[in-house]
Design a binder for these strands. Structure first.
Length: 494
RNA sequence: GCCAAGGUGGCAGAGUUCGGCCUAACGCAGCGGCCUGCAGAGCCGCCCAUCGCCGGUUCAAAUCCGGCCCUUGGCUCCA
């Protein structure tokens, strides 16, 4: 069973073939650090995270690089609001992104390069493009001449004469072709360019632009263009050809198209073997986006629902299809996660039950484990179908419930395998937090909960159900879920 | 206008690459039952889909071909 991925370049679901059979070079286009990250960004991150984890699970050595665009006009537009200079604002949001990523339980990428730290590499790449005749200078700015790169448009299937002009009016007059794009821009940021992006509390445009960073170059004191950064950073950290380049589907054109043109023109090598695009998260029929103002921040989502629910929600739709955020879809994710978590804990408890050591053999449960593993593997190998992978785990949990409900003693070995499977696939691959460590606070809390439940049992035994229900309500109001069973109450810390 | 991806039950969402195991997965909501002092959880069962429309190929199509309608995204910073 081999991994298949949908490649935007070919438009087909094809066998994944890294340059080297043992390792994968993975690049993800990160975000511009000018606003808090929202659930749409989180969707990309979590899916890339799971791709990373699955590739590692398959035995590949994964080198994963994800950039921060910390030089951008939208960042300048926040000056005064979130810092006193472009660099301050960028630092502020880089930190918030890092915090969000931790909150989402993402596996760390190997490097998180920033544009501001790669200007020399960017300048060098632009110089190469000029030397090779792919780029030209005009009034201190440098543009890529799209007519010199024969395959321009191959990713997005654009015809050159159909492409509308890129860039602002001043830029148009300097360019040879309307579709040419900037590699280097002379001077600082034009106040007029940021006005539309400013919020209340921001500095006046002129003052904000004063704080914008500029760098020396052979052509002018200026700033790097919008697309060259990813080419330069990817090449610097992963080399000329990478295996998987992932990004949001809104980046296909022009960003990724331009990256291909720049990189392949500069190196003469294929830039990325597989291009994967995460489709967008929608709310009420339109994409979730900072500029549309219809977003739900990562921080708010994690605060409200918790990491596991947010991840379950995002993984409930395969990355390759657009997803809908609504109350109903979040509620479904809550139920799904709780079903998995309860099932897992039931299996753990059953394993720890003395009766579990009885020599029961439940073929149904044993088969269910094998089936779930196969189902999960098939799903993930089929273009990282996380929805289907979750379904595999849900089915396994159903089998556990049947087993525990129906058996008076348990199949220890099978339950052991269930627990390991859920921890390995649900925890290790999907990044959900199965298996909790019991630190001191938790165990004290558990002792206290048990004490309260003992009291309640006494009230129940005495027939004082009213008092018993009050006690249960009070315990539950503290975030503890109580379950009465034939063998007495069980509980779960929320 | 051009490029791309989609249209599957009340909701959500797999399956379409390689046509048959799809009388369409997992789930949410709803209904009935088991269990229970009650509730929740769990279990069992049920309800709801001729898979956008029209035509074609085939023994066989959600899956292939043609046409049409609609939605979303991109063509401007955007995950």
């Amino acid at each position: 069973m081999t991994l298949r991925v949908t490649n935007t370049l070919t438009g087909e679901r094809e066998a994944f073939e890294p340059r080297d059979p043992d390792s994968v070079l993975l690049y993800y286009c990160g975000l511009t650090t000018s606003d808090p990250a929202h659930l749409g960004h989180a969707r990309g991150w979590v899916h890339v995270d799971v791709m990373h984890r699955w590739l590692a699970h398959l035995g590949y050595d994964v080198r994963h690089v994800e950039n921060f665009t910390d030089v951008n006009e939208k960042i300048v537009a926040r000056v005064g609001e979130d810092g006193e200079s472009e660099a301050d604002v960028a630092r502020h949001y880089v930190q918030s992104v890092i915090d969000d990523m931790r909150a989402l339980n993402l596996r760390r990428a190997e490097v998180y390069p920033r544009v501001s730290e790669h200007v020399p590499e960017i300048v060098a790449m632009v110089e190469t493009l000029i030397e090779k005749g792919y780029a030209y200078e005009a009034n201190g700015s440098v543009y890529f001449d799209v007519t010199t790169f024969e395959e321009y448009g191959k990713l997005s299937n654009q015809q050159l004469d159909e492409i509308e002009a890129q860039g602002d009016p001043d830029e148009q007059s300097e360019k040879r072709n309307p579709a040419d794009f900037a590699l280097w821009k002379a001077g600082g940021v034009d106040p007029a360019a940021i006005e539309d992006h400013q919020h209340e509390g921001a500095s006046p445009p002129e003052a904000a632009c004063e704080s914008a960073q500029t760098w020396d170059s052979p052509w002018s004191e200026g700033r790097p263009g919008w697309h060259i950064e990813c080419s330069a950073m990817s090449t610097t950290h992963l080399g000329e050809t990478i295996d998987i380049h992932v990004g949001g589907q809104d980046l296909v054109f022009p960003h990724h198209e331009n990256e291909i043109a720049q990189s392949e023109a500069a190196t003469g090598q294929q830039f990325a073997r597989h291009w994967l695009h995460v489709r967008l998260l929608e709310t009420k029929g339109e994409k979730m986006s900072s500029s549309l103002g219809n977003f739900f921040t990562v921080e708010a989502a994690v605060d409200e629902y918790g990491t596991d629910v947010v991840r379950t929600f995002l993984l409930s739709t395969a990355y390759h299809n657009s997803a809908v955020y609504s109350e109903a879809t979040i509620d479904e994710a809550i139920e799904r996660w709780e079903t998995l978590e309860r099932g897992y804990e039931r299996a753990v408890r059953a394993c720890d039950d003395v009766d579990a050591y009885a020599t029961v053999e439940d073929d149904t449960l044993r088969t269910a484990v094998t089936t779930a593993r196969e189902h999960f593997e098939t799903a993930m190998n089929d273009d990282f179908n996380t929805r289907e992978a979750l379904a595999a785990l849900t089915e396994l949990v159903g089998a556990v419930n049947v087993h525990v409900d129906e058996q008076s003693s348990f199949d220890y070995r099978a339950l052991r395998e269930v627990v390991e499977t859920i921890e390995e696939l649900g925890g290790g691959v999907l990044g959900l937090s199965f298996g909790y460590s019991e630190d001191g606070d938790v165990s004290v809390a558990e002792d206290l909960v048990e004490l309260l439940l003992d009291v309640r049992e006494a009230e129940r035994a005495a027939g004082n159900y009213e008092r018993a229900d009050e006690l249960r309500d009070e315990v539950e109001s503290l975030g503890v879920e109580v379950q009465d069973t034939d063998d007495g109450p069980t509980y779960r810390l929320g």
